[in-house]
Computed example of a mutant assay.
Amino acid sequence: MSVTGDGFDPARRLACLPMYDIPEIARGTDRLWSGLAARLSARGVSRVPLRLTRVTDPRPVWLDNNLLMAQTCGYPFVTSLAMRVSYIGTPCYAADGCVGPRYRSWLVVHRDAFGRSLEEFRGRRAAVNSWDSLSGCKVLEMMLPRGETLDIFFSSVTISGAHASSIDQVSRGVADIASIDCVTWALLARHRPAVIESLRILDAGPLLPALPLVTAATTPAADLEALRGAIKDLLADDCSDCFDDTLIRDVSFDSERDYGEITARLSQVGVDGSGGGRRGKN
């Protein structure tokens, strides 16, 4: 299936839930989408995709005008995706560190590492999942001393490609510290406990809006309302099989304005909130 940003074509609509879709919960994520798809069809939405689109890089999917539903990161949501997607809602997760539709990052280090504060990791090696990740990069930038950048504070910054990869690098001693989404941490604690047990939490990042569910800005208003209604239907039906694996316990539909806090916090610490930032070296 091609993924493009061309005109709206309801015959090839896309659904993608990539942010926490580790292999161990892929079947649970599929069950979640199957439940939503059935309820969307029941609400009259046409050409609902039967299967999720799974891609290595979700950015083209987020920008596709035929996107029916996806989950994205809060930082792209307020920068590169602004005016390109419409907000559906924000999942609330049953994970330590989450409060309602908010989550935080854990700064994690090897359990045997010397140091009890971020300052004691000055000059060491950091692993970052992506430059445009709120939980993995921007939170780390927020927590640096004012005026300092990743490349000043750390001796090196490696782009790992995923939170799980950052965790693996710290576990193996390839990196010394990483900022990890608390939902990812909870999922890996459930499914890969040996890796998590090799690490410890050094500090907690600020409580921020969790990862939003979005649809293309071209999605008809009636379909946007159907998306919200189908999610409410699924929650009301107590479809535990659809939610347990993903740790979703509820969805907030009135948290869109909260995402402005992300750019405000980044501006306060001198990080560009328009899509750039204080970057370290690769």
Rank of each mutant, 00 (worst) to 15 (best):
G44T: 11
W62F: 15
G89V: 11
V55R: 04
P23E: 10
A26G: 08
Y93T: 01
A11S: 15
P60I: 06
T72H: 05
S252F: 14
G276I: 09
V183H: 03
L234V: 04
D64G: 13
Q169Y: 13
R102Y: 15
D168P: 00
S156A: 14
D151T: 05
S46M: 08
A175P: 07
G260A: 06
A126Q: 09
R59F: 15
V183W: 07
L247T: 14
G173P: 00
N129I: 15
I25N: 11
E256Q: 10
R84H: 14
G35M: 08
D244M: 07
F153H: 02
S240C: 14
G115D: 02
Q268T: 15
I248Q: 04
Y93D: 04
D233A: 04
S41L: 12
W33S: 07
G276T: 09
R43A: 15
R43G: 12
R192K: 14
S252K: 06
L188Q: 10
S46K: 12
P101M: 01
F154M: 06
C73P: 00
S274R: 11
I177H: 01
Y93H: 11
M143L: 10
V195N: 00
F153I: 06
I196N: 02
L63A: 05
G100Y: 09
D30M: 06
A178F: 08
G276H: 11
V170N: 01
N282P: 15
L266N: 04
R59D: 14
A210Q: 02
W131I: 13
V45H: 09
S34V: 11
V214K: 02
R146K: 04
P10M: 04
R47C: 14
A217H: 12
R257A: 15
R27P: 13
L17D: 02
I25A: 07
A37D: 02
T56R: 09
G147D: 01
Y103G: 15
